[in-house]
Design a protein around this nucleic acid. Structure first.
Length: 479
RNA sequence: GGCGGCAUGGCCGAGUGGUGAGGCGAGGGUCUGCAAAACCCUUUACCCCGGUUCGAUUCCGGGUGCCGCCUCCA
């Protein structure tokens, strides 16, 4: 079985995984600041794709890089008067911390640019030898775009029609299209030795080097945001194919859409970024996951509190339903049929360009149908073991934390058994117990009064045959 | 100015040449002392104008709008 992936270079569909192996490289962050929710999309999404592929027994090598040398890092270090390495370590840690908050797993390798200087130098030498690059007298080395006729193929642009920089200055470059492979360093800047003097790598060359090193057979998938399709990926392609024309570099380029804030791209340069830490605190990681996975990775997604709230409610519904059937010990025919159907639809959706919205829809369809059966016959709730397993399997692959569903606890308060989840104060428990007593005495006015009091405290009571359950209900999922 | 992408019901969002994906919300019901939760019913959509077709939301052409890239950017 193969998977189909849409390739931005050709616009067509590429089939991958014939040999059971898939190599994935995605462009990671430049660590000069905290990553924002938009930056995280690439990691969250490809982590899900990798989980899926592994669950279907593909041998996956997953790589994302860290750009740990770049102008912005140096600038930040100068601003703060600390070393560039300190900036790198601080924001690499921050990056990892935020991914963990989102429940995103780590790749197999997380190479850093500065660990691949010799590999980069080798490619640059190769490019110079083949006439695709030239050193200038100031110690910079540039790529000669004109020497590579396919330049522009990935971003669908003709070099001749590309806009020149506003100032029209080319500096030491022969053409405004040429880009830097190696940048001569100034006295106080970090630098590495090279045949062209001390300097540091340009942005694009690191990915050519790291893909080559960590995925020597070429990347099946090379991912990143649509905004780095040009120039970053275009330049990478020109470098790698220029230096090694016979070697397959990337089989499918997959670009994901931008996270938008009120119809505008979320970007540090615009200043409309949302910190992952805040969003996770406010809405929970699963709501964020539901939000990002309920739309296709290729298109844009809008960020808003309203949408995140909605996604939280969707997720809650799944958690509730799963909680209802997960204690099942046996599987009815309905359960087996729904479980099989769910797994089939899930597979079909994921194989088709990782269509996570359709995959999630399959879960809801199964949930709705089983819910109907249970509504018709409450006894049936205990006969959905196989469906519970299937739902758990699917949601786990998608990276949701079903186990993080609030654990139900029970307490004896004033002789009344109250069930609840999360952190509940003594006061709230007493109110529930009081209400339960009033109900038993059929003093409904008093009972409703106590319920109103709970309500204003952000709590709701659900009466069940086994007694009252206290749940948090205050708009958001958390305080 | 150049290139690319997208326009789907109250909102969010898949998908398809011909029997309403899914979610959220709203209204009505079943259940409940009343609620909540759950379930049922209703809310039957595909930007505009042409064309191809027996038939187009889906294909083609034109238009409009939005977004992204062309400079650092996931």
């Amino acid at each position: 079985m193969t998977i189909k992936v849409r390739d931005t270079l050709t616009g067509g569909t590429v089939e991958l995984g014939e040999n059971g192996r898939v190599g994935i490289y995605v462009c990671g962050p430049t660590v000069y600041n905290h990553i924002h929710i938009g930056n995280s999309r690439v990691h969250l999404f490809w982590d899900v794709a990798v989980r899926y592929l592994r669950s279907r027994d593909y041998e996956v090598k997953f790589v994302w890089n860290i750009t740990d040398i770049e102008d912005k890092i140096i600038n930040k270090a100068n601003e703060e008067g600390v070393s560039w390495r300190e900036i790198v370590e601080r924001y690499t840690d921050s990056f990892h911390e935020r991914l963990a908050l989102l429940g995103v797993g780590m790749p197999d390798v997380e190479p850093r640019a500065t660990e691949h200087i010799p590999e980069m130098i080798r490619i640059i030498e190769e490019l110079i030898e083949k006439g695709h690059a030239y050193p200038s007298e100031n110690g910079d080395v540039y790529y000669a775009v004109e020497s590579f006729p396919e330049y522009g193929a990935l971003s669908n642009q003709k070099p001749s029609e590309m806009r020149e920089t506003e100032k029209g200055e080319t500096g030491h470059k022969k053409s405004h299209l040429d880009f830097t492979l190696w940048k001569a360093s100034k006295p106080d800047e970090p630098s590495w030795e090279s045949p062209w003097g001390d300097g540091r790598p340009g942005w694009h060359i690191e990915c050519s080097a790291m893909v080559g090193k960590h995925l020597p057979d070429g990347a099946d998938i090379h991912g990143g945001g649509t905004d780095i399709r040009f120039p970053h990926h275009e330049n990478e392609l020109a470098q790698s194919k220029g230096a090694y024309p016979e070697h397959e570099f990337v089989r499918a380029w997959c670009h994901h859409g931008m996270v938008r804030m009120t119809d505008e791209k979320m970007a540090k340069s615009i200043g409309n970024v949302v910190d992952i830490k805040d969003v996770v605190e406010r809405f929970g990681a699963d709501a964020i996951r539901m939000w990002l996975l309920q739309s296709h990775y290729g298109g844009p997604v809008d960020f808003s509190e309203k949408i995140l709230d909605e996604k939280g409610r969707s997720w809650e519904r799944l958690v509730r339903f799963y909680g209802q059937i997960s204690p099942s010990k046996i599987s009815s025919e309905d359960s087996a049929r729904l479980a099989t159907g769910l797994l089939e639809k899930f597979d079909e959706a994921m194989r088709d360009d990782f269509n996570t919205p359709e995959a999630i829809a399959a879960v809801f369809e199964a949930v709705a149908e089983a819910g109907r059966a249970i509504s018709a016959n409450p006894e049936a709730a205990g006969e959905f073991a196989s469906l519970a397993d299937a739902i758990e399997e699917v949601l786990t692959i998608l990276g949701f934390e079903l186990s993080a569903a609030p654990e139900e606890k029970a307490a004896e308060v004033d002789g009344v058994s109250v069930r609840y989840s999360g952190d509940v104060g003594e006061g709230a428990l007493r109110l529930v117990a009081g209400r339960e007593k009033a109900r038993k005495e059929r003093d409904f006015a008093a009972a409703d009064g106590l319920r109103d009091e709970l309500h204003s405290g952000g709590w709701a009571v659900e009466d069940t045959p086994e007694g009252p359950v206290l749940v948090r209900r205050d708009g958001g999922l958390r305080e």
